[in-house]
Computed example of a mutant assay.
Amino acid sequence: MARRRNLRPEETEVWELVARTARAMHPARPKRPEAEAAQPKPLPKPAKPPGGLPDFRIGSRAAHLPARHDVTPTIAQQLEASPLRMDAGTHKAMRRGKILPEARLDLHGLTLAEAHPELIRFILNAHSAGMRLVLVITGKGKDRDTGGPIPTRTGALRHQVPHWLRLPPLGPVVLQLAEAHLKHGGAGAFYVYLRRHR
């Protein structure tokens, strides 16, 4: 670091000559009286929209949307929309709970990894035994929605079982799938109507 030194007399004389000819880059503004400085400036009035447009407020015309924005159809709606591949009269009797299931599988308390092999074993054994209607109980599931931007589904098994029943090795043996009647579990269970064993 350079050491500061005092100016010599000839250097001081040159410096004073230069300082007298210099002009300030930003001249000092005139001082305002203290009374003016203490008063805050009034806020400017908002400009009116040109052309006589009506006043606009954000959200004033927004539609009132439901709290959940789940656009996918429910399991019941998906099953209703699926094509009917069995006798209409038998399907109607099955949906009303008039046909008793020949066997049932309760998947309550199982994880997805545990439930999938159990479901495969149960459906294939029922099909090989010549059964036509079986009941698979999944439960309705717990509501675990945390209110985040992405909704979480209620009941993982309830949503996964219909997909498993459409995929191999179960898809070729399952003829129809329907939500169970209230006396057999309602929305927490499924009727699985199997194809004839050949």
Rank of each mutant, 00 (worst) to 15 (best):
L7I: 01
P149I: 05
L110D: 08
P73A: 12
Q77K: 15
R144G: 00
G141F: 02
T90M: 13
K48C: 01
A81K: 14
S128H: 11
L135N: 03
L43C: 04
G188K: 10
L105Y: 05
A47Y: 00
T21F: 09
H64L: 12
A19I: 02
V71D: 05
A63P: 00
D145W: 11
L124D: 05
R61L: 12
V14T: 11
M94R: 04
R195H: 14
A62W: 04
L17T: 06
G147Q: 06
R158W: 02
A24H: 08
G59Y: 04
L7W: 07
R20M: 08
R153T: 10
P9H: 03
R195E: 10
D87M: 06
H184G: 01
L105G: 01
D70E: 14
L194P: 02
T146R: 13
R166P: 00
L182G: 02
I120E: 14
A22M: 14
P49C: 03
R104G: 13
A38P: 00
R20H: 11
H163D: 12
E10P: 01
L167M: 11
P30H: 08
K45I: 11
I75W: 07
P169S: 04
G52N: 05
R196G: 13
P54T: 03
V192A: 08
E13V: 13
H108P: 05
M94S: 03
A35I: 10
G139V: 10
M94H: 02
G188V: 05
G130F: 00
L84Q: 14
G139F: 09
A189L: 08
A47N: 06
M1H: 08
H159T: 06
G171N: 03
M86G: 04
R96A: 14
E102Y: 02
N125E: 13
W164N: 03
R85N: 14
L84V: 09
R85F: 11
E118V: 04
